[in-house]
């Protein structure tokens, strides 16, 4: 019985990362400083009711490069499962070059 419990605990303790999508815009010849933005969304038991957190991405990026433009943006959409079925996290990151 104890070994069965141990197997169950081990199964639920494994975290896995899954890349859902990746996109890249054209990279500028004059690369400035690298700016990065990331949003995270915690999901319990698959219940998720909105996706408005994604709107913060471009706002975060532009706030880090107020006097220039952000080019060569790599957007990465990753799902990390911490406890299967119970809890997983969506991590969407965007990074690009701030060109003045």
């Amino acid at each position: 019985m104890k070994s069965l419990m141990l197997v169950i605990v081990l199964l639920f303790s494994v975290s896995c990362a899954q890349v859902r999508s990746v996109s890249q815009t054209s990279i500028p010849t004059k690369r400035g400083t690298l700016v990065k933005a990331e949003v995270k969304n915690n999901i319990f038991f698959f219940f998720n009711f909105n996706t408005t957190y994604l709107n913060e991405l471009s706002a975060q990026l532009s706030s880090k490069c107020e006097k220039g433009s952000v080019e060569g943006i790599l957007t990465k959409d990753v799902v990390v499962t911490y406890f299967p079925i119970i809890f997983y996290q969506e991590q969407i990151s965007a990074e690009g070059f701030c060109v003045n």
Binding site: R20, S21, S23, T25, F46, F47, N48, F49, N50, T51, L54, L57, S58, L61, S62, C65, E66, K67, G68, S69, V70, E71, I73, T75, D77, E90, I92, A94, G96
Partner: peptide
């Protein structure tokens, strides 16, 4: 009912 995200892409930002 649930909301699922399939794909996200951020384009260039100019100011």
């Amino acid at each position: 009912s649930c909301a699922y995200v399939h794909h996200t892409q951020v384009g260039e930002i100019k100011s």
